[in-house]
C-alpha cells in the first residue's frame, strides 16, 4: 500500500511536467500577449513593451522561458531564481507586485486562509460536492427501492434535467427566477459572508454531479436488489432497514465511488463558468480572467494546481476502492 502510494505520488511529477509543457505551447500559440490592452483603450507603447519583456524574460527564446519557468534561471541581478520545482509559480504579469501563489492562496488582511481565492473555491466546491452526494445518493436509493412509482418517475425527470442542461443555462434560469423575479437573492451577490448568496452557485455547480450520482446509485441499487446475498440477508431474519443499509448500500456504492474523481474534475471545470457568472471571488474566475489577459504565469500556475488537485482526488478514490471492496487488491 505504501509503495503503491509513493509510486502514484511520484507519477505526479511527469504528469505535471507534460501538462505544463502542453499548456505552455498552447498559451504561446494563442495570439496576443500580456501587454495588450482593450482595443479602444490606450495601448502600451513599444519601448515599454520591450522593457517589460526584458524584465520578465519574455525576450528570451521560448524553450529558455519554459526551462526558466520549470527549473529557474538567473535574473537581472545575476541571482538564480528557482522555478516550479521549488514550488515557485512566478510573478503575475498583470497584477503588479504579486506572485501567482499570492493571488491564489493569500487571503485579504486579517482574514483566514478560507478567504483566499483558493479557500473560496474549495468552500464552494465542497458545498456543491456535499449537496451532490447527500442528495444524490439517497435520491437514487429511494428511486430504486420505489422503482416504477411516481417517486421514481419524479426523480428520473429531475435527474434527466440535471444531466442534459448545461450548468450555465441552468444558472441563467435560476438567476432569472430567484433573483430577478422573486428577489430572494442579488443577481450578482456582493457580500459572500452571507450564506444565502452561496445557495445558487453551489446548487448550480453541484446539480449535474448530483443528477449523475442519483442515476448511478439507482442503477447500482437495482442491480444489488436482485443479488442472492440480499435474499440471504432477509433469510437470516434481518430487518429490512438493516438489509438495505448494511447489506445493499455498501455494495451499491462501489460503482458510485468510481465517479467521485471525474465528479471533482467536473466541479473544477464547472467552477470556471459558475464563478464567472456569479462574480464569485474564487480561483475559477481568476483563471478565466487570466486567460483573457494572457497572464502567462497565472494561467500555468492555476492549470497545474487544478491538475494536482484532480490527480490527488483520483488517487484518493483509488485508495477508497480498496477500503470499500475487499475483492480489489493493489498490485504492488
Amino acid at each position: 500500500m505504501a509503495t503503491y502510494l509513493i509510486r502514484r505520488l511520484l507519477w505526479l511529477i511527469p504528469i505535471l511536467f507534460v501538462v505544463a509543457l502542453i499548456t505552455f505551447i498552447m498559451m504561446h500559440a494563442a495570439p496576443g500577449g500580456p501587454w495588450d490592452r482593450d482595443l479602444n483603450a490606450r495601448q502600451v507603447d513599444a519601448t515599454t513593451q520591450n522593457t517589460l519583456n526584458e524584465y520578465y524574460g519574455l525576450d528570451k527564446p521560448l524553450w529558455r522561458q519554459f526551462t526558466a519557468y520549470v527549473f529557474g534561471d538567473v535574473n537581472k541581478e545575476n541571482k538564480f531564481v528557482c522555478g516550479l520545482v521549488c514550488g515557485n509559480l512566478g510573478p503575475s504579469y498583470r497584477v503588479r507586485g504579486r506572485t501567482v501563489q499570492d493571488i491564489l492562496f493569500e487571503p485579504p488582511k486579517e482574514k483566514s486562509f478560507l478567504y483566499s481565492r483558493f479557500g473560496y473555491s474549495m468552500r464552494l466546491g465542497g458545498l456543491a460536492l456535499s449537496m451532490a452526494i447527500l442528495i444524490g445518493i439517497p435520491a437514487g436509493m429511494i428511486a430504486a427501492l420505489k422503482q416504477n412509482t411516481w417517486i421514481d418517475y419524479v426523480s428520473l425527470f429531475i435527474t434527466s434535467i440535471g444531466i442534459s442542461i448545461p450548468s450555465f443555462v441552468m444558472a441563467i434560469f435560476l438567476i432569472i427566477i430567484f433573483a430577478s423575479m422573486l428577489h430572494l437573492v442579488n443577481v450578482v451577490p456582493k457580500d459572500w459572508d452571507d450564506g444565502k448568496a452561496w445557495i445558487l452557485p453551489a446548487a448550480v455547480l453541484g446539480f449535474g454531479t448530483m443528477a449523475f450520482t442519483a442515476r448511478l446509485t439507482r442503477a447500482s441499487m437495482l442491480e444489488v436488489l436482485r443479488q442472492d446475498y440480499v435474499r440471504t440477508a432477509r433469510a437470516k431474519g434481518l430487518h429490512e432497514r438493516v438489509v438495505i443499509f448494511r447489506h445493499m448500500l455498501r455494495n451499491a456504492l462501489i460503482p458510485v465511488v468510481t465517479i467521485l474523481g471525474p465528479a471533482l474534475a467536473a466541479l473544477v471545470t464547472g467552477s470556471f463558468i459558475i464563478e464567472t457568472m456569479f462574480g464569485f471571488p474564487g480561483m475559477g474566475r481568476a483563471y478565466v480572467t487570466a486567460i483573457g489577459q494572457r497572464d502567462y504565469s497565472m494561467i500555468l500556475g492555476t492549470t497545474l494546481l487544478f491538475v494536482f488537485l484532480v490527480s490527488l482526488a483520483n488517487l484518493t478514490v483509488d485508495m477508497l476502492y480498496v477500503v470499500i471492496d475487499p475483492r480489489i487488491r493493489i498490485n504492488e
Binding site: Q227, D228, Y229, R231, T232, A233, A235, K236, H247, R250, N251, I324, D325, P326, R327
Partner: peptide
Amino acid sequence: ISMIFQQPQTALNPV
C-alpha cells in the same frame, strides 16, 4: 427456520 441456497458464493455478501 433457516435456508441455504444453490449458489453459495453469490449467496454470501462479497464485502
